[in-house]
Design a protein around this nucleic acid. Structure first.
Lengths: 123, 123
DNA sequence: TTGACATATTCCAGAAATGGAATATGATGC
DNA sequence: GCATCATATTCCATTTCTGGAATATGTCAA
């Protein structure tokens, strides 16, 4: 049949933005951010979550590239991987003008644009 | 405390981070960010998505405070609301050191810390 | 009012994400 | 190799999210 393809079903687990949507994963990143690096066991203690849960969250973060792991004896030490987080940073930064003094001029432009568009809407 | 509270059942739709996890919503924000403001109908055209879909995404963005709407004749003009997006910006910014020259010293600290912890792990 | 236009909401089915328990894999020391 | 410690993975049940279609609400113009 020929209707549109089902469309790749949105987000997927391989997206940093989706990864940091979960508050626990953000918490993990925050801890790693402050501590620099940490083994899974330590994270389990700090978070007071069952170990499998922590490992699963770490797996997600690893998959999107937000963290990297290195084997250190029996344990695995995780640390922040900057690149992917910078992606989010860069994205939000594009809206920077909206929370600075440039706001006024932007709003003006927006207003006039909206007015204009709304009136000449013929199509 | 004995154990941790059940923890508010994760994400919820009232969180900016969850809101921007969806690529289409990010796209909407990008468009609004560039254009300043835009009516729903225009967004429908640009995104080439069914109108109900766009309205639903806008509803989510509105709910988390990422956008605000103002009635303009028959149509509703949406525009970026800075505050909430700045929240995300601020959060990611806390990792800034990881993608700048400070990276080296951080990594060193992390490494030595990891080593130390791993060895004196008796508990 | 009535009708047309613009947007929002509801209902539904399917996909995906999460937590929990059990289990598997990997590394180390003896 | 064997027992143990550390972490990862699988299976399952439940909740949440998204898209689509149909429908409802709201606004303007005549």
């Amino acid at each position: 049949m020929e209707y549109d393809a089902p469309m790749p079903r949105a987000p997927a687990i391989d997206d940093v933005f989706s990864a940091i949507a979960d508050p626990r994963r953000r918490q993990i990143l925050e801890i790693l951010g402050v501590s620099g690096a940490m083994a899974v066991g330590e994270l389990v203690e700090k978070l007071r979550l069952p170990q499998p849960a922590v490992s699963k969250h770490l797996a997600v973060l690893r998959r999107v590239g937000a963290v990297v792991a290195t084997q250190r004896g029996r344990s695995r030490v995780y640390r922040i991987d900057a690149a992917e987080l910078k992606t989010v940073y860069d994205w939000t930064k594009t809206f920077e003008a909206y929370w600075t003094n440039q706001l006024d001029s932007i709003r003006e432009k927006a207003e006039s644009r909206a007015k204009r568009d709304a009136s000449q809407r013929k199509k």
